[in-house]
């Protein structure tokens, strides 16, 4: 349990790379945590926890995909497997670096843009609410959000690359 809490951000990011929405990510993580608890005896030492946990999370995520696919456009299973390989290789340090870079990068955006960037996580309808307050339509805001996030990602990537080298 302690190990799970410690590695939760890394596991969550990993699950997020496979599953297309946050609800299914949380469901999969919850199922994975129960399985981990049941199989904890198999774990040799603490250092082996993250790779071991990722195997379980990966399995739970990929088996959840079929259900998610019913009401959402999702990438193909083959591509998701490839992405999972890529994400599995990211270590915990990298996740911490991303998080750190995010703090720096976010501060380069204006206050309204920061608000928009964080809006999708404040529950359904927050972006819509912002649209109602301003001149832009919901669609236009989502387009802007896509571009802002791409810009943020570029900044984060730059920072992470420097940290790694």
């Amino acid at each position: 349990m302690r190990l799970f809490v410690k590695h939760e951000p890394a596991l969550r990011a990993f699950a997020r790379s496979i599953l297309p929405d946050w609800n299914s990510v949380e469901d999969a993580l919850q199922e994975a945590s129960v399985t981990m608890w049941e199989k904890l005896g198999q774990l040799g030492d603490e250092d082996g926890f993250l790779p071991w946990a990722k195997v379980i999370v990966r399995f739970k995520c990929l088996s959840a995909i079929a259900t998610v696919r019913r009401n959402r456009h999702v990438l193909s299973d083959e591509v998701l497997e490839l992405i999972a390989d890529e994400a599995e290789a990211m270590d915990a340090g990298e996740i911490v670096n991303v998080r750190r870079a995010l703090n720096t990068c976010l501060s380069q955006f204006s206050a309204p843009h920061q608000e928009l960037l964080l809006a999708p996580y404040a529950g359904d309808g927050r972006v819509k609410q912002l649209a109602e307050q301003g001149p832009k339509s919901v669609n236009a805001l989502y387009k802007l959000l896509g571009r802002l996030r791409a810009k943020l990602a570029t900044c984060v990537r730059g920072h992470v690359a420097t940290e790694m080298s």
Partner: peptide
Amino acid sequence: LNDDPELRREFALAAAMDTGLREVAF
């Protein structure tokens, strides 16, 4: 994504960023 390993890495990074953003929002 199927054709470009570099883009897959971008994708994994974007997922990590999404996770971080959600934490910041929280």
